[in-house]
């Protein structure tokens, strides 16, 4: 067990001055045949700097929570979607269908116990729940068939639910992609589409942790693609199957990892020995000391950063709550890039 204490850097677990840590990180990454920048729990500036470094190294970029983000993006790409923001749902939804068990913080921000402030009639909201699980996609399929008013054999609870859903004026369906299969999300988007023929519905896909949505946005404007990007000859290529960091580490394809965790989400999920540069806030515990560990500031706590705001559903400025003079992820990545040997 190794804990990054309040030193600027550590090499194989031993405290070192920051310039030495930067130089070691640069040397390690420059010598790798297939480096991966993973974790990516950072602010917009950190994501932009990670893209620049990956472009320079010919590295792969992936986020710790990319699976969930890509599931939502897939559903959008496959059949289109209609979505809204928590802020709008709080102000206007008269019916909320909660699928699975989304994290309570954003649900609390919806103030479901109150009538929607901007609704004309100010009636209490209807809040309905649908359990996640193996059969969810199939049940949603039946619900869609019922919403389309097709003759289909369906259990009684679904018939009742379909009737309730049809009665909404502005219905909102809430889910967290991490808990659902791709097919279930596709079904939810389809259900919203079907219900929208007669009334108004919108989906509310809740964001994954680690600023995954914000980093996906930043990668979008920087490269045109979300996560799981590889740079070859300076050009980005996107492949959600083959550029998955965890899989690349497990198979041995990746021979060095820069683990970027400025938001304090924890160390890498794998136990595999791979050469590791870790950028993490002090206090992060690793099973084994990374070859290079650099202490990084936390956006929104130690310094200002642009982060996806889960209630506004937008990338907003997060001002520091307790400013500390720690280097930002963008600072450290920029210094590592500057320390790479000239190409």
């Amino acid at each position: 067990m190794f804990e990054l204490v309040d030193a600027e850097a550590a090499l194989d677990g031993r405290p070192a001055p920051l310039p030495q840590g930067i130089a070691a990180a640069a040397a390690l990454l420059a010598g790798a045949a297939a480096p991966v920048i993973a974790g990516l729990r950072t602010d917009a500036a950190g994501a932009v700097a990670a893209v620049a470094l990956a472009r320079r190294l010919g590295a792969v970029l992936d986020h710790a929570e990319s699976e969930a983000v890509l599931r939502d993006l897939d559903a959008m790409r496959i059949g289109g979607w209609i979505v809204t923001t928590p802020a709008q749902a709080r102000a206007f939804a008269d019916l909320v269908l909660i699928v699975g068990d989304p994290a309570p913080d954003v649900l609390a921000a919806l103030a479901l116990e109150r009538p929607p402030m901007l609704d004309a009639e100010q009636r209490p909201r209807r809040v309905l729940r649908l359990a996640a699980g193996e059969t969810l996609a199939v049940r949603l399929g039946l619900l869609r068939a019922l919403a389309k008013r097709r003759e289909v054999a369906a259990p009684h609870d679904l018939v009742t639910l379909a009737e309730a859903l049809a009665g909404a004026r502005y219905g909102v369906v809430v889910w967290s992609a991490a808990q659902l299969s791709s097919l279930a999300i596709e079904m939810l988007c389809g259900l919203i589409e079907d219900l929208s023929a007669a009334t108004r519905y919108a989906g509310l896909p809740l964001p994954a942790p680690g600023n995954a949505a914000g980093v996906a946005q930043a990668l979008g404007w920087e490269t045109g693609f979300p996560f799981r990007i590889a740079f070859r000859d300076g050009m980005p290529r996107h492949d959600p199957v083959h550029y998955e960091a965890t899989r690349m580490v497990a198979s041995g394809e990746a021979d060095a990892v820069l683990w970027l965790d400025a938001l304090g989400g924890g160390p890498p999920p794998w136990r595999k020995q791979v050469r590791l540069v870790a950028l993490a806030p002090p206090g992060t515990r690793f099973a084994d000391p990374p070859e290079v560990a650099l202490a990084v500031g936390r956006p929104g706590i130690d310094h200002a950063g642009a982060l996806f705001h889960p209630v506004a559903a937008a990338v907003l400025a997060a001002l520091p709550t307790a400013p500390l003079p720690r280097p930002t992820a963008a600072d450290l990545l920029g210094r590592i890039q500057a320390a790479l040997p000239a190409c």
Partner: peptide, 22 residues
């Protein structure tokens, strides 16, 4: 965009509402 979504080519779209225009 809501009304025009079914003329999409390729057949996909994103309609995203917000507290203003969306």
């Amino acid at each position: 965009q809501f009304n025009g979504r079914h003329s999409a080519h390729p057949r996909t779209w994103s309609i995203a509402e917000d507290i203003g225009n969306g």
